[in-house]
């Protein structure tokens, strides 16, 4: 059997969504929110030292976060692109939190829609990215926007699944959601 994740009734994200789908969702969000001519180039780049993340949590049969991470300057540029003529000369951190969080909200909402339900979506959060709990439960897409790197990570919030010989601590054999 190769269906180890299904043994505990829970699938890892790579069994549920692929990078192409995530890229398609992100591209559509960019065109609608950032601008019609704003393309995402599917090339991974090295993130700068100073990054900012925006994410929403998904809770359901698959539980985790949809996390966007980019350089702080790129997050500010994205904010200006969303605000367009309404962008102030000096951006507040609140503006960046609002705009970057809303992009994560739209991308996350559409990722959630492509996952098995029912599940719920949390409110957007902005800050340092939540830690990857299980490297096997991650779908990671690296893109370039205006030449700057941005990462979309759909990552599980739960620890790695127990090995077959470990006593099962999960009372929900079928992965029942609360």
């Amino acid at each position: 059997m190769t269906l180890a994740p299904a043994r505990a009734g829970r699938q890892v994200i790579t069994a549920l969504i692929d990078e192409v789908t995530v890229e398609s969702i992100a591209t559509e969000a960019w065109i609608a929110l950032v601008g019609e001519d704003e393309v995402l180039v599917p090339l991974a780049g090295d993130l700068p030292a100073e990054t900012l993340s925006a994410w929403v949590d998904v809770v359901g049969p698959w539980t985790g976060s949809v996390v966007l991470t980019t350089g702080r300057q790129t997050a500010a540029d994205l904010t200006r692109a969303l605000l367009r003529e309404a962008a102030p000369e000096l951006l507040d951190h609140e503006d960046v939190v609002d705009a970057f969080g809303e992009i994560a909200n739209v991308v996350g909402g559409n990722v959630k829609a492509s996952l098995p339900g029912p599940s719920t979506l949390g409110l957007p959060q902005v800050g340092a990215a939540p830690a990857v709990r299980n490297p096997e439960d991650v779908c990671r897409l690296g893109v370039l926007w205006r030449g700057q790197p941005l990462v979309v990570s759909v990552q599980g919030a739960l620890p790695p699944l127990p090995s077959p010989h470990t006593p099962n601590e999960n009372p929900h054999q079928n992965g029942a959601s609360l």
């Binding site: 929110l33 904010t79 969303l82 605000l83 367009r84 309404a86 503006d95 609002d98 705009a99 969080g101 809303e102 909200n105 409110l123 957007p124």
Partner: peptide, 12 residues
């Protein structure tokens, strides 16, 4: 909308 940016986008 709780996002001011999104309210602006909707109005736009």
């Amino acid at each position: 909308d709780d996002s001011r940016v999104m309210r602006q986008i909707v109005i736009r």
